[in-house]
Design a protein around this nucleic acid. Structure first.
Lengths: 197, 197
DNA sequence: CACATTTGACACCCGATCGTATCAGATCGT
DNA sequence: ACGATCTGATACGATCGGGTGTCAAATGTG
């Protein structure tokens, strides 16, 4: 807590602090998304971010706190990108939203892994649950409910589709699906319609 | 490696060894299935199994080796139980196989967590992939392929259904699905038919 | 030019865990 | 009964990572 905040390298103190914080988050996305949260230490993060431990503890109190920030940023950006797609779909056509989501998640295996694996374990579990809740809410947003169906049954289908998305994403990254991204999108649009019929 | 194997407590040396090995695997299922593999140490396993470290190293060289054995045993038992269900379904009706699988996975949250979360990370990843492969093969076993469809598209639907199963299982354990096991089975049978139509 | 602050590199202590070793008591073979 | 082996508990050295502190060099302030 310095009493006088000076300008260094042409940038203010808070700007420098935020830059370092972002570098740590970037390093977290890289390492968490490849090795997994449990296999990453503070020293690893600092090496990846090219910073020292001092600046880690300046921004985060623990690895889990950094992991939470990484997860939060990734999911926030994803939701932020998907919303316009939902609006474009007009609550009827899932393709624009699905396209945006899958291009965001499928194009980056680190994001896919964070969402599908890391978001379920340890300190990230509550955040993963929160994202799943948001996803299911988004589902109901642009999936007009068939009048006769049970509410719980609808929720089940929402989770089923969410699980299908992540599993297909993982399989695609492993290379067992011999399909282009656009083909995957086409197929998942069909799956969506099959589940909502 | 004792040169002379004696009988202790009425059981032979190899029997005692196998009993201890099974106690370790049971402890592994309990702890891995609740805390997660990464959060469990050898001492924890020994405390849960009421054995000492000596007998851990008698059977396994590392935590990952125990985790592999646990995963292997769980998935083997699952497949072993499901096969008769597939036969009972005669390659047409998925309900018997689904019932057996979901009763096996849904009834034990530790198994669900192992399959859905732990099987994707760290040293268990290859085994998880192997199980996914087996599951997709089983899918093709009792899902006669529509003649006109692409093979890759079929695989995608197989992974989609597998992902739906695990995600619904997790959601059910979290209590966000207000459905009985039988209702979940009914709904997933519908999902299956929707995906294979 | 002094002086304060920021930065980065490194040293240090501490607790946890791993893997091995030791030892007394229980159990079995002869 | 006596010796050998099995068992369980505990102890020990070593390593690793977390968290804090120190110090010199770099940069901005007056």
């Amino acid at each position: 807590m310095p009493e006088t905040a000076r300008v260094y390298g042409g940038v203010t103190a808070t700007e420098r602090r935020d830059e370092r914080r972002q570098k740590l988050i970037d390093a977290g996305l890289e390492l968490f998304g490849t090795r997994g949260v449990a296999a990453v230490g503070i020293v690893d993060i600092c090496a990846e971010a090219k910073l020292t431990k001092r600046y880690f503890y300046e921004n985060f109190a623990s690895i889990d706190e950094l992991a939470a920030a990484v997860f939060q940023q990734v999911t926030d950006r994803l939701v932020e990108q998907v919303i316009p797609g939902i609006i474009a779909g007009g609550g009827q056509d899932p393709r624009p939203a699905l396209t945006v989501y899958l291009r965001g998640a499928l194009s980056d295996p680190r994001v896919a892994r964070l969402l599908a694996v890391e978001g379920r374990t340890g300190a990230l579990a509550p955040y993963g649950d929160g994202f799943a809740t948001r996803a299911v809410e988004l589902w109901f947003e642009f999936s007009p409910a068939p009048e006769g169906s049970d509410d719980a049954a609808l929720r089940l289908r929402a989770y089923a589709f969410a699980g299908a998305l992540t599993q297909v994403g993982l399989a695609w990254h492993e290379g067992v699906l011999d399909l282009s991204v656009d083909q995957v999108i086409d197929e998942l649009v069909d799956v969506f319609h099959a589940l909502t019929a």
